[in-house]
Design a binder for these strands. Structure first.
Lengths: 199, 199
DNA sequence: ATCGGCATGTTATCAGTGTAAACATTGTGG
DNA sequence: CCACAATGTTTACACTGATAACATGCCGAT
């Protein structure tokens, strides 16, 4: 029996016509897909199928596939924020907070490769012009502000900004190189590269 | 007139049945496509169409789309190597060679965003265990060896390796963040971030 | 020189994708 | 209570990468 396009075989399963909270279900299934597939293999139709709904039903909740992926990114962002907060709160005194954050960043990327990629390609441009944007809660801001706290107080603002960008670049670059298979996922190497020795 | 799938309207253009050097033509057109499209929009069929050949003719020269893209990567690699060599040879004495290489790396990424992405996701793992692989000519090796030359001679090998990885990470991370629109394409900022101040 | 085989093209077809249009069903507020 | 808005469904279309079967033409052995 060839799967007939995007049918859903209504009167087979006991579900009701209306789903209840399809939007949330789509996001959940989308996260499941992206957690063990490359991002370019994540399919709107497959998500709909797994949720048990027709492909076009998705369009009642998202204008297009990009918007659905965008919703996944939002979830990813809070996940990353939580990871950062958790890493910081678990840090015993005397341990360098920036190194902890850096390792958490790389670890998050490794644990959520496709989602991380998606987040990076879709996120809005980081507010990077003036330091210490308290309101900003993006990945860069949390990492950057942590670095700001461990830098010497008399660091001139311009140099401080450069160091923040270097820190982000190092941590992000290392993450991407590991995700792309150019560098191995080696805990010791990660710790060494992220170490603050360069500041 | 609806485009009838993958036809090529033979007796309309004066071309002969056999192309002569289709493989090269496909690579050239592929490079053209990737130079002004995102990588996920590059289409095997579109390439074939632009070359004036049926879609399936491609499969006489490449087993699948991935192989064609792989060929584009190879061209990209020599392009990057040339860029590096050119940057080095244009460097006046007294200027830090590593900063020159770093800027060239970032500039290449900015000038060839899709190709650069493709190269990074397809390249084999960098040989990174022992330094100074003379034979290795990949992006990392050239950058890394340049850094090796400007580091103090008495730097212990282990520290040297970490610094090489940090250098690559910084340069690669900055490139990706700019490509993803997270950081602006600002010459001064790039120069500052790539500066060797962190060594 | 011819002729057969092989390299290199072609068309037809398939399964899969995102998306729009038209139709169906249901919960809900006047 | 019932129209309507919200939320589903089916159908259809233009794409994509890929396979199978068929066509053409170059080139070397007889």
């Amino acid at each position: 029996m060839p799967m007939n396009d995007n049918s859903v075989n209504m009167n087979a399963q006991g579900g009701s016509y209306h789903h209840g909270d399809l939007r949330a279900a789509l996001i959940e299934e989308g996260l499941a897909q992206i957690s063990n597939s490359r991002v370019e293999k994540v399919s709107l139709r497959q998500i709909a199928r797994n949720v048990g709904v027709s492909a076009t039903a998705v369009y009642r909740h998202f204008p297009n596939k990009a918007a659905l992926l965008g919703a996944l990114c939002e979830v990813g962002s809070v996940k990353l924020s939580d990871t950062f907060r958790g890493a910081l709160s678990d840090t015993p005194a005397g341990i360098d907070a920036f190194e902890v954050m850096g390792r958490a960043y790389v670890r998050f990327a490794i644990d959520n490769p496709s989602l991380f990629r998606l987040m990076m390609t879709k996120a809005p441009r980081a507010e990077v012009l003036q330091p210490d944007q308290e309101k900003e809660v993006g990945a860069f801001a949390m990492l950057s502000n942590t670095l700001g706290e461990v830098l010497p107080k008399d660091t001139p603002p311009e140099l401080q900004m450069v160091k923040r960008l270097q820190a982000w670049s190092i941590v992000h670059g290392l993450s991407m190189l590991i995700l792309d298979g150019q560098l191995p996922d080696d805990e010791k190497m990660i710790a060494a590269v992220v170490s603050r020795s360069f500041l």
